[in-house]
């Protein structure tokens, strides 16, 4: 369904691996922070694709697994700083869930260096830029994440 524009090319074979990063961000803080990076004409690595949600509290751990299944080499979750949540406590729920989820991910064999959790406020464009660059470079160093991709294809077949 999503076979477009060099998508099926095996990244390693091309020699210069460019990781794909999926970012789940909240609408109020991090999305606005990323917008600010744009309006300030900052530059960062192009590997990230953002999915906007109202709040990090909306993030279902399955989203992250699905992202890996669909070819993400790294996943980033970012929302408002603790205490600044637009919905008062949504990000606390996200954080609590995250702590439990992390050990499950480790159990599932996912290298925790592929998963990042951060707080980026609407004014922290620089932090957003640094974060994307850092995550991209780290995941790049780890190489492609292939284990879950097979899972998806067999499932589709």
């Amino acid at each position: 369904m999503s076979a477009h524009l060099d998508k099926d090319e095996t990244p390693v074979a091309s020699g210069s691996f460019e990781p794909k990063i999926m970012a789940f961000v909240c609408n109020w803080c991090t999305y606005a922070g990323a917008d600010l990076a744009g309006t300030s004409r900052m530059e960062y690595r192009p590997n990230v694709r953002i999915i906007k949600l109202p709040c990090t509290g909306r993030i279902d751990p399955l989203f992250i697994l699905k992202a890996f299944e669909n070819g993400a080499d790294g996943v980033l979750v970012s929302g408002c700083h603790p205490g600044d949540c637009h919905y008062t406590t949504g990000n606390y729920h996200a954080r609590r869930r995250w702590i439990g989820f992390k050990s499950l991910m480790e159990f599932a064999g996912i290298d925790m260096r592929r998963l990042h959790f951060s707080w980026v406020s609407a004014s922290e464009a620089i932090k957003w830029v640094d974060l994307i660059n850092k995550v991209t470079d780290e995941v790049k160093a780890l190489g492609p994440f292939m284990e879950y991709r097979g899972l998806k294809e067999t499932e589709l077949e």
Partner: peptide, 22 residues
Amino acid sequence: EQCSWVHHDKTKATGTVKSVDL
């Protein structure tokens, strides 16, 4: 904000790929 303004590649390759994906 998420593409053309933050990826300054004048060949348009980077921006086009990302815009297509998004």
